[in-house]
Amino acid sequence: MGKFLLRRLATNVILIALAASLAYMLAATTMNPRGAYEGRQPPVAEEVIDATLDAYNLNDKTPVFERYLTWAGGVVTGDFGKTWNGGSVNEEMGRRIMVSLRLLLIGTLLGFALGVAVGAYSAVRQYRFSDRAIGVSSFVVMAVPVFLLATLLAIATYNLNRGLGFTLIEYTGEYNPRLSGWDQFLNRLNHLILPTISLTLGSIAFYSRIQRNMMLDVLNQDFVRTAMAKGLRRRTALFKHALRTALIPSATYFAFAFGTMLTGAIFTEKIFSWHGMGAWLVDAINQNDVNSVAAVSLFTAVCVLFAAFLSDLLVASLDPRVRVS
């Protein structure tokens, strides 16, 4: 077991290194950080630009392989280099991870919990009106891409606020820096409402579909009948025996979603102006910020592999067949 895990860890490290290197090469060869300095008014002397770019390891006059080695040498020691205007990528990353975490943790957990609950309820009420209503609405929700949903929510809130004459629900940014203490906390929660809705609706629809199908599968199986036959109440049998087994596939997806959570909310972050990891990716591309792009890619790769590991672990802990073998 230990040997297997070690080998897997080694493959993953190689995969991450390869993915990050490819992303760096792609970004370094196609992006043009010089452009941000060349177009300035008053014009900056070329030597000054060169010196600045050299200091940030972004100079396109240096051969790309040399730049790559400098970058890779830094990454190995935990230094991701400089952003296009000289800031530290490490600091930026640390700050943005926290922003994403504050934005996404609640939404991700809530989406899973509600989705499983709705799906299980729908399965227990199979073919009744509530089951059909849930089915139809989850289909509709899944057909609405998240950037559309977020935009619609923002427009609706804008109109609502304008109709009321004051700002009931905030629709942009993370918090109001002028407030402090308790007021600021409430303000932060207010800012969370819309992005959280836009994140959770989709996952509720997604998980409820999976959970309903799995639950229906399990409900007809012998061990649930046995559980009821031995005198358990229906509720106990459903919760302790059926739901737990039926949770495995959704849990796998959830583990994966949880692991990749931090980089997954590009649209929500951009549309509601939260400066998290997802928004960073878009900003970095637009700003020709080579080192930031490489850092986000590396971070994403780590997240994906971590997520895969997490979902294996979760399945093992939920599924007795896997656990025993």
Partner: peptide
């Protein structure tokens, strides 16, 4: 397959397609 899964597809398409 593993490598492509690990690469951030959004990023790569986003870098290449404007070009």
């Amino acid at each position: 397959v593993d490598l492509l899964l690990v690469l951030p597809s959004f990023l790569i398409i986003a870098i290449i397609s404007p070009r």
